[in-house]
Design a protein around this nucleic acid. Structure first.
Lengths: 333, 333
DNA sequence: TTGTATGCGTTATCAC
DNA sequence: GTGATAACGCATACAA
């Protein structure tokens, strides 16, 4: 493998000039630049990235912290991150944390040791032991932490939940249950707030019984929906905080002999690819998953390279997708 | 940040001894080891990974090449890789190639430049421009290249397809269509072989018309199944090479007014989590996705570290999962 | 078992 | 605009 020294010898210039030709071409005269470039080709010189990383204390690598890569929504986000990272010359280290805080911290430490230049966090934690540590480039997406000045990228979750609830109300539903994510997550609280707001606007009493806490899994959709139907006043519509739980719920409700949407409406969140292909096709909130990733990577890039165009808070658009899993409320006959 | 020199001063030993204490503790006397360890704690010394990587020409990082991370089966495999990699002290670089050969080569070059120590390839290419280049630790999984000596981890795809086809035949089906993946993929050819073998054993003529080439997407399941039903002799069963295409197919067939499985049977491959929750629940071939990943990482680790226990060819178990999307063949009434 | 000394390949500082 | 040279922090060959 040719080194920078080999190139400098062949080009008849110093190693410094070769280095400059590569990283700051405008600081080299056109003439010597040509000579050096020729020598680089002749020697088939490839800069030693490890040496460069070591010297510059940069790795051109970012780590993405994800609770679970097998979640279809997250994997789309990661695809968006990866595509944009490639374009910007960054590699993506995968940090599947399974929600484990220690793993988050382990990965976050890779930034402190310069193994990575920044972090994209998809969960609603701050992955540091103490916030007073050294400055770490980070952006928080999808499920954002409140009360910090960490740049975030999200949709207006409260508004999205409000709109979906309003839509269900517009269909005549008055007893609308909701299957949530983990209660401590910001995203859960935001969406719950939107849900309650819509109820209040429609002068429908909020019934605590109508809330069931899920964990975003298919299974939790089935168990939660089953539980909800045991209520003294079972709901006529169920709003799930992701599509997996909605699909789990529909499966369960069908098993109980209910027809969707004639007997009960079900709505989801995310608009994963399967939503459209389900039976019935799922009414849901569509989120721009890839754009989440791409915007996050772009923002992180700006932070790392101290571009002053850092937007502290980016809101992306969501869309209510109406399909066949929701329908008008019908009184029992 | 404390360096190895700071530690050596405090401990009153040479930097070499500190270095040894960390990487080859048994080469240091118990007494000095204690002293050094105390000094490490006192200074809160953390080895500079970048310097170490540079010096040792190793990165403790592997790259995984995946055609599409958003594919639920692949994301489970990657989860398996990542979990095992963490345990072995390796970081995982994500290489979403979108099937692009140039991207594969770009990522593969990271190994040649020591930015990564090895590769796990999930697609059926060899990610090198020429095979005569320097030796690169690599393992190939899921969809394996033939005729190379690259270690592979796979299920017996031909056998799995044969068994599933046999099962459909046992239900009385004689016109069994198959929706494949890309024709040039090893996995497609293997499964096709198994399918044909089962037909032959049952003395059923192979009908080229019964093959439709898909691309593993939901959409291709719908278009392929639609096409197949236009055949002069439409099939009474469709075997799809993944669950997404099976779900796409069922959606399409239902739209055409067909009942599953009364009018037509559909089987998939992979047993993704949604398979069980579909309506009807999908008959499919279950593959141990996480185990694929974990076995691959373990094997790659052995190769990188030249453990002699490298198994060139690992076969994992599959299982035919019979659910409700397949049923007995019924003559038209 | 331990210490000394060297160098890995690059970038950055400072002269010229 | 260019060159000489000093780091960067570590691991290791070799000497002791």
């Amino acid at each position: 493998m040719a080194t920078i020294r080999d190139v400098s010898k062949i080009a008849g210039v110093s190693v410094a000039t070769v280095s400059r030709t590569i990283s700051k071409p405008d600081k080299v005269s056109a003439k010597t630049r040509k000579i050096v470039e020729a020598a680089i080709i002749e020697t088939d010189y490839k800069p030693d990235i490890l040496a460069r990383n070591f010297r510059t204390r940069k790795s051109s690598t970012i780590v993405v912290l994800v609770p679970d890569i097998a979640n279809p929504f997250f994997s789309r986000v990661i695809r968006g991150i990866e595509q944009t990272a490639q374009g910007l010359g960054y590699a993506v280290l995968l940090g599947d944390t399974q929600g484990d805080r220690n793993r988050e911290i382990t990965y976050a430490n890779m930034v402190k040791t310069s193994q990575a230049d920044g972090i994209i966090q998809l969960d609603s934690h701050i992955p540091f032991e103490n916030e007073n540590g050294p400055y770490v480039p980070i952006v928080n997406i999808c499920d954002c932490v409140r009360g910090t000045d960490i740049p975030t990228i999200e949709i207006d979750n409260a508004l999205a939940a409000e709109k979906m609830t309003e839509y269900l109300i517009s269909l005549g539903h008055k007893s609308i249950a909701i299957i949530t994510g983990p209660v401590d997550a910001t995203i859960t609280q935001d969406r719950l707030r939107g849900y309650k707001k819509a109820l209040k606007k429609a002068k429908i009493d909020f019934v605590p019984e109508n809330i069931s806490v899920g964990d975003y899994s298919l299974l939790s959709g089935t168990t939660s929906s089953h539980d909800l139907m045991q209520n003294t006043h079972p709901p006529s519509a169920i709003f799930c905080m992701n599509d997996e739980m909605a699909i789990g719920a529909i499966t369960q409700l069908k098993k109980m002999g209910l027809r969707i949407p004639e007997d009960i409406s079900v709505a989801g969140f995310d608009d994963i690819s399967f939503a459209e292909y389900y039976d019935p096709p799922l009414t849901t909130v569509s989120q721009p998953a890839e754009e989440f990733g791409s915007k996050a990577m772009q923002t992180l890039y700006n932070i790392i390279n101290k571009n002053d165009l850092i937007q502290k808070h980016t809101f992306l658009d969501f869309e209510i997708i109406i399909r066949k899993s929701t329908g008008p409320f019908k009184y029992e006959t």
